[in-house]
Amino acid sequence: MNLLWQAVEPSYKTYLQLVVLIDMVFLAIAVIVIYALFPEWQWLPAPLWIGIPWAVLTLIMAFIWSARRLQFTAYARSPEAVLLRRGALWQSTRAVPLNRIQHVEVRQGALERLLGLAHLVLYTAGSSGADLSIPGLQLATAETIKNELILTIAKEPTEQESHE
């Protein structure tokens, strides 16, 4: 089966970088607060011992990890299923058969709205990990895919399909 993998928007990388930056800033603030509040704790290492790994980690995450993640993330549509590739180091390729989709949702976080991005979530009845979320789509694209999916699902030849 030849799949046509569709890459996500390049601005998804910017989104990932922003998320990394925000997380790392929160981490830094937490560490700084500890250092400021408890100067008497002897066992705390010199600030540089934390600062340098922090900076290296931030750089790696912001440049290498996010680039890799953008590069690998893609989605595809076969006649029976929607597929999604995701991950940077730990990679997974998920496939959801169309006739198992319960409902479809377009979601937009605050950061995503800033960049004009959205993600599309396909819910199944499976256990917690069984929902498929396609990130880094343009809002319009996400809406288009959603409508197209809903049409296809509604036209399915069975009368037993469930719509919760």
Partner: peptide, 13 residues
Amino acid sequence: AQQITVYQSPWLR
């Protein structure tokens, strides 16, 4: 089945 995933950790890859 609801979803099938192929998963690769760096080690598996």
